[in-house]
Design a binder for these strands. Structure first.
Length: 205
DNA sequence: CACATGATCGCCT
DNA sequence: GGCGATCATGTGG
């Protein structure tokens, strides 16, 4: 068995980015403040090209992870290890890690090179007729698109995995809450850094 | 509906 | 050696 073989995306996530009116934002989109990027990623699409075809889904839930002062962030206290290294890249890179030994989490790196902040993609809404809860959670989102640690460190800008935004973004109300699953993070666990589309049936629970 | 638990392993202390 | 930026399944009320 080939250990390093890329995983196939769920066929039900097949999309035509052009028909959906999606375009790729410039690098500057990702170099902005992390909270700003986290808010703007709700409503954007995560897309992946696999064997000449595009697969993707509309992001409906994100979380901002800030720098050294954020106890919930992997870069807390200025930690810098091989796993976390992609977080230190310039905004627009992908940081993927494994949690609980079996689930992957995909993050969009933000800000300038050396500033280790990122946005966790927590949930997305599948196109077409796929079950609404197929990607309702960070692990499920990665599983559906076939994203693993293999892709950690990739540049999203112009890459086979990329972020796409609608040509005209509908004005959408954004709900805010504390982040999920970080009870160990002290006061940071109360910070309002989770953003989601409360009308979507694809938000995690 | 609200918990409770097991699965499973790379990473960091 | 301990522990997660999770999920599915099980129990009981």
């Amino acid at each position: 068995m080939i250990a390093d073989e890329p995983k196939r995306p769920d066929p039900r996530l097949a999309i035509d980015p052009r028909a959906l009116g999606l375009r790729e934002p410039p690098r500057g989109f990702f170099r902005r403040g992390t909270v700003r990027v986290a808010r703007d990623l709700v409503g954007a699409w995560i897309a992946r090209r696999w064997r000449g075809r595009w697969y993707g889904a509309r992001i409906v839930e994100t979380e901002a992870y800030l720098g050294p002062a954020d106890r919930a962030a992997h870069s807390w206290g200025g930690r810098r290890t091989p796993r976390i290294e992609p977080m230190y890249a310039v905004g627009g890179h992908l940081y993927v890690f494994l949690v609980y030994g079996m689930h992957h989490c995909a993050n969009v790196v933000t800000r300038r090179e050396g500033e280790a902040e990122a946005v966790l993609l927590r949930a997305a809404e599948p196109p077409g007729g796929a079950p609404p809860r197929l990607l309702a959670g960070p692990g499920k989102l990665c599983a559906g698109l076939g994203i693993t640690t293999r892709s950690s460190g990739l540049d999203l800008v112009g890459g086979t995995i990329r972020i796409l935004v609608p040509a005209r973004r509908p004005r959408r109300r954004l709900a805010v809450s504390p982040r999920i699953g970080i009870d160990y993070a002290g006061d940071a666990k109360h910070w309002p850094l989770r953003f989601y589309d409360e009308h979507s049936k694809s938000v995690s629970r």
